[in-house]
């Protein structure tokens, strides 16, 4: 598991949700993470109204956020009115009552490592533009980075894209998962921490791991 985030992490994620809402013309934005029991828990939201919207899917156990996580791909609902009534019987009604017409859910993940979901709520129906989609993916990538790096502040807000790593990085992640007997998310966090500490590039760390020149043990 990613270490239980302390307040600074939640604060950074709340700011990220605020930026998501304001830069993507959304009425709200929220972010839920996987807790230890594989259930979602709400971690951050742009404002109290977003928090209630985000919480609703967790309470009802249905909605785009749940689907995006299960399918491991974004759930882009440009018009809630077009959604079949059987898809989310309770959730869709509740959202309409709250004045939400469109929801866009982005999984926070790297391959099989699932960290959570970022949700955008809009009061108007209609799809995100190409530019808005790219912006949303960038924000999702940033949220993954914040979750992985946890409390360790790296100075400047890094906006590296965790999904665009070279394939060696993901292979190394799989190897480290076995070495530490932990999760893929922990493995990536360890690789990144090592790269920061040694001030070297992720790809170079990955190649050392693949060559067997660098190993991670159960205890750091």
């Amino acid at each position: 598991m990613v270490p239980e985030p302390a307040d600074p992490v939640v604060a950074r994620l709340c700011r990220l949700c605020e930026r998501a809402a304001s830069s993507l013309s959304a009425a709200g934005a929220g972010l839920s993470v996987f807790a230890q029991d594989n259930q979602f828990s709400l971690l951050a939201a742009a404002d109290p109204a977003s928090e209630r919207l985000e919480e609703l899917q967790l309470v009802l156990g249905e909605g785009p956020c749940i689907d995006a996580a299960a399918d491991r791909r974004p759930a882009l609902i440009a018009d809630l009115g077009q959604v079949a009534p059987t898809r989310w019987p309770l959730y869709a009604d509740a959202m309409r009552d709250a004045g939400i017409r469109a929801i866009f859910a982005f999984p926070l993940q790297i391959g099989a490592a699932q960290l959570g979901v970022l949700d955008l709520f809009r009061a108007e129906q209609g799809p995100l533009s190409g530019t808005e989609l790219r912006r949303a993916f960038d924000l999702a990538g940033e949220a993954v980075t914040i979750l992985l790096d946890g409390q360790e502040q790296r100075g400047t807000e890094r906006t590296d894209d965790v999904m665009a790593g070279p394939f060696e990085l993901f292979q190394a992640q799989g190897m480290v998962m076995i070495q530490i007997g932990g999760t893929l998310a922990e493995a990536m966090a360890r690789i990144r921490a090592h790269a920061y500490a040694e001030d070297c590039r992720l790809i170079d760390v990955a190649r050392e791991i693949l060559a067997g020149d660098l190993r991670f043990d159960r205890d750091q």
């Binding site: 490592a113 292979q171 190394a172 992640q173 799989g174 998962m177």
Partner: peptide
Amino acid sequence: EQAKGAIAQ
């Protein structure tokens, strides 16, 4: 890719 690494290890 992650599975390849995990199996290799």
